[in-house]
Amino acid sequence: MATATTSEKAKQKSDIFLKYLRPRKGMPSVWCAGCGNGIVMTAIIRAIDKLGLSKDNIVMVSGIGCSSRMPIYLDFNALHTTHGRALPFATGVKFARPDLKVIVVTGDGDALAIGGNHFIHACRRNIDITAILINNNIYGMTGGQGSPTTPSAAFSTTTPYGNAEKHFDPSALAAASGASYVARSTVYHATAMEKLIGEAISHRGFSLVEAVSNCHTYYGRLNRQGDPVTMINSFKEKSVQVTKAKKMSPEELKGKIVIGKLHEVDTTEFCDVYQSTVDRLDGRK
């Protein structure tokens, strides 16, 4: 439908989704109407397009859950694995082929509950993998059970009287475990998320982007947080830029979502260090 008035740039802009969607698979996705997973997916598409990476050299790995369906839609090398194990599968891919860009798409239950051990160890190892953790505070695919990021007192189908447990802060956990790049954004801040994902992919070492997202179908409904629009708008109200948050007291930050680049350190990457050992030992059999 390109017309004479459509410039090359606009053409590119409108073709970008078709360029990165898997032929023969196609949309619509399995996600509910208004699900933030799709917003994160488009942010990933735009970030990768801006970086100009070859689709052949990107491996997208995921586990099980709503967010983990993403690699099936995107036209990269896709590895849709078992629940919680996306990071060790990705570790195998990256370590065997360090020239490939490995992106893991995971959810809060997948990465922090069943995959919690793999998560901290991938951070510790500082292997060059970009993990995009879509945090919607609940298990969506199985129907709204409490997850490690379900806040205290929040409702889910397995916390019908309010969650008695405390929740994880995935970004703080990653930074404490040794991840060398940690950022957080929300689906409201989709353009900022695109930028952070781009930075994370370019970063050499383990990078985490926590994408705060909405599950209005379960979390929103059970906690009376309204429709997707209300939830997405609430992220706007609750978010505080990291620069501003540094000047705020813990009381003021209660209930807020600190967004932006939270942590970055310049340190050695696992595959690089191992390769230097291989080079040093060359031919010593």
Partner: peptide
């Protein structure tokens, strides 16, 4: 998991 990933 890493073994499967590397084989792929």
């Amino acid at each position: 998991a890493a073994v499967v990933g590397s084989s792929v």
